[in-house]
């Protein structure tokens, strides 16, 4: 299928982007990598009147080390981040998760911020951003705001972004001294996960654990390593588990129960300092 008609604009500055967003609001869609947007346009699921192409904006194509966090601009592709030299050392969990994001070919174009903004409930990057307590940087003519990831991602494909705002960047807190682990189960290699589990060690045998695919957005919890199986079991039983063609809620709960404990164990034994 072919997209419905729309106007296309490729602004030269971020200011122009914000002007357009202010003018068009919900009628506009920001086009960065297009790996989620274009399929929806091709399927005629959307009818934006304007596409704002930010993929060539150098100002947004930056990876910025802020010391305590790494800020990734809206035009940075997933593969660009993957080949960013300090990634392994500064964001080992992101490095692990990126291996599971789509395919080489889609990561070449798909952006980190685009994945966060799309807010698929089983996508890897929103899970990791939420788990690490990261932030989303929203820009509009009204100013720049940051929002905690957990507040940004509200539900399935739903975020707190206002119509005039651009997801200008996301910030992943640097986690290099704690063990991390990530694993997922998908039907096919590269598909969205049925269940994705990520863990990052806290102090005193505690792990912070996130799960994607169980609800409309990533869920987080602190869990004691030695009681991981029990705690994950109890947690899974509290949840409905999202139901779709590929997995029943019961299957998701079962997978979570089996996937969660080894991920926690892996995080607790991971070598720290970037070689997780």
């Amino acid at each position: 299928m072919k997209p419905r008609p729309f106007d296309y604009v490729r602004p030269d500055t971020v200011e122009e982007v914000l002007e357009l967003l202010a003018e068009y609001g919900d009628d506009a869609r920001v086009l960065a990598g297009g790996q989620s947007l274009l399929p929806m346009l091709n399927l005629r699921l959307l009818e934006p009147s304007l596409l704002i192409d930010i993929s060539r904006l150098a100002a947004l194509d930056t990876i910025h080390d802020r010391g305590d966090a790494i800020e990734i601009g809206a035009a940075v592709t997933q593969n660009k981040l993957m080949s960013w030299a300090p990634l392994q050392q500064k964001l080992p969990l992101v490095a692990l998760a990126l291996n599971h994001v789509g395919h080489f070919q889609t990561r070449n174009k798909g952006t980190v911020c685009g994945s966060i903004a799309h807010a698929d409930p089983s996508a890897e990057l929103p899970l990791v951003l939420a788990l690490l307590g990261g932030e989303v940087v929203l820009q509009s003519r009204r100013g720049t705001f940051t929002l905690a990831a957990a507040d940004f991602h509200q539900d399935m494909l739903t975020t707190a972004r206002k119509a005039d705002e651009l997801v200008a960047a996301v910030r992943f807190p640097v986690v290099s001294r704690q063990g991390v682990a990530f694993q997922e189960v998908a039907r096919r290699h590269g598909d969205f996960a049925i269940i994705a589990v990520a863990a990052v060690m806290q102090d005193a045998g505690q792990a912070r654990v996130g799960v994607g695919g169980m609800a409309g957005r990533p869920l987080l919890r602190e869990i004691k390593v030695e009681r991981a199986a029990e705690a994950i079991g109890a947690w899974a039983d509290e949840l409905e588990g999202h139901e779709d063609l590929h997995a029943s809620g019961a299957l998701r709960r079962a997978i979570f129960k089996r996937l969660g404990p080894p991920v926690i164990a892996a995080a607790s034994t991971a070598k720290v300092g970037g070689t997780a």
Partner: peptide, 10 residues
């Protein structure tokens, strides 16, 4: 990259 997920104008 996928040319079906890219607009010609891009």
């Amino acid at each position: 990259q996928r040319s079906c997920l890219t607009l010609a104008v891009q």
